[in-house]
């Protein structure tokens, strides 16, 4: 087994014309991915009047920073929610990924006696669940997940999909001989996992961490179900609260009557909702390179540490 570091160079890469084609395809797609976000930014800077007159457009009649002013005016609630989002995302991700690795590692070990059982045990819950009401009752009444941070973290701790993905990462990146070698050295299971496996599985761990973190960051449903205390609202919920109100009133406007349109007029306009999207996306986009380092940089310096 070669343990020397190798550097990629031009000779080992694809030819230049091929790479140009790659740039066009992938770059083009990447561009397409970002355009709607630019659209969101444009709407967030459009004046409400412009939206009223010509709808959502790349070229608003009038620009305005009103929406951002309004969001910043929320002051303490906004920063509080930022804090909550970070807290929940970080604590949630660390705990969740740790649990995920432990479970996935055991499933990865082919000499684990109950491997198949536990694989099935996790997989089965991906498909079947008791539905919202029973889960809600168990969380709230049995586990006391109500109006506390735990309510925002615990119900999303385990995602069987990530466990299965993590196991597959381990299967692709950890050579069998490594485990055997460790066993001969008399290394305990926890030691093997933390000293040997984790360091060489960084791309997989970083990926699962990233996805888990995004799940926590994007979540608003748990807040809606379990938390009523606004000092514990994460950022995403602030946005969804408004969005859900608007959706509901629109759906029921013909039944609620005059009042619905009155209330709708008092709710924050589209530009405000879009500026909240910007507030939500920017921090996580900034956290992104941290994970990406492990997902992509491993490409340049191919190394297997023993």
């Amino acid at each position: 087994m070669s343990r020397e570091k190798t550097k990629r160079n031009r000779l080992q890469s694809v030819s230049i014309p091929t790479e140009i084609i790659f740039h066009i395809i992938v770059g083009g797609f990447a561009l397409a991915c970002i355009i709607p976000f630019i659209f969101v930014i444009i709407i967030s800077f459009s004046s409400e009047e412009s939206i009223r007159l010509i709808g959502y457009s790349f070229k608003p009649l009038k620009w305005s920073t009103e929406a951002y002013g309004f969001v910043l005016q929320m002051g303490s609630q906004l920063w509080r929610s930022y804090f909550n989002s970070f807290l929940v995302s970080i604590v949630g991700t660390v705990t969740s990924v740790l649990m995920c690795i432990l479970y996935a590692y055991a499933l990865f070990r082919r000499d684990f006696k109950y491997r198949k059982f536990f694989m099935f045990f996790a997989f089965f819950t991906m498909l079947f669940g008791g539905g919202l009401a029973p889960t809600y009752m168990v969380c709230k009444q049995m586990l006391g997940l109500s109006d506390n941070y735990a309510a925002l973290i615990v119900p999303a701790l385990v995602n069987p999909f990530f466990i299965i993905i993590m196991r597959t990462f381990l299967q692709t990146s950890v050579p069998e001989e490594l485990i055997e070698a460790a066993a001969i050295d008399g290394s305990g299971e926890y030691n093997t996992l933390f000293r040997i496996i984790i360091p060489i599985s960084k791309p997989g761990i970083a990926t699962v961490s990233l996805l888990t973190m995004i799940n926590y960051w994007n979540d608003w449903f748990l807040t809606m179900l379990y938390v009523r205390d606004s000092s514990k609202f994460p950022l995403q919920y602030l946005l969804m609260k408004v969005q859900n109100q608007v959706d509901f009133l629109i759906k029921n406007s013909s039944v609620i009557g005059v009042e619905a349109s009155k209330i709708l007029q008092d709710l924050p306009g589209t530009s405000l909702r879009m500026s909240l999207v910007v507030f939500i996306v920017v921090p996580i986009a900034c956290a992104y390179p941290f994970f990406q380092r492990y997902i992509i940089s491993g490409l340049t310096i191919g190394s297997v540490k023993g």
């Binding site: 809606m224 179900l225 009523r228 609260k241 969005q243 859900n244 109100q245 509901f248 209330i263």
Partner: peptide
């Protein structure tokens, strides 16, 4: 204090 957005579900 349910809101227009969360009352139904809640």
């Amino acid at each position: 204090w349910g809101t227009w957005g969360d009352f139904d579900q809640g």
